[in-house]
Amino acid sequence: MLRLRRLQAALALVLAGTLALGLVSGVRGSGGEVFPFASWFLFSLVPDRVTTYELRVRQFDGRTFDPPRALAAVENLAGSPRSATTFEAVQRYAQSVRDGDEARQAATWQALCARMVRFDLLRFEVVEQTFDPIERFRAGRAAERVVAADLRARAEGVPRPGSDPAP
């Protein structure tokens, strides 16, 4: 009987611990999860007006896109172009470009490159979009602002504006 009670107490502790650590994960927010104890706060907020960033490709190796095409719509560039992980990687890189934070740019660009095939030359722009999701879905309406107009990158190194970087 004592063993059963101990087992009950241990199981209750595991469940309570999962709840407590999950709440800690929730408080710490994105990137602060006490793995594997997630908060499970998935889709907890309804998008009202949304601001997201898009990488628009002008040139990828020998191919030129006019008008520039969203990374997710360029074939054979990103490994999983429509995954939420790629989306997050684009957001982090774009935000570092927006903030002009060079150290963060280097780190987030490397993380984004890890999700892309090797390329010789990539020319792209970073665009900020603000929209109401339903309006944009129905009518394609979104307010756009170009954050960086013409970034060029080789396989190695951080993208720079202007002329093609040396190979």
Binding site: T18, W40, V46
Partner: peptide, 30 residues
């Protein structure tokens, strides 16, 4: 046998707890 059933019930509770946390996250966010 009783301990096995209690552990199994705790595994069920663990699965359902994750949904409850998600639900309450949506309620508080909402």
């Amino acid at each position: 046998r009783l301990g096995t059933l209690q552990t199994f019930a705790a595994a069920q509770a663990m699965i359902l707890l994750t949904y409850t946390m998600s639900g309450f996250g949506k309620i508080s966010g909402g």
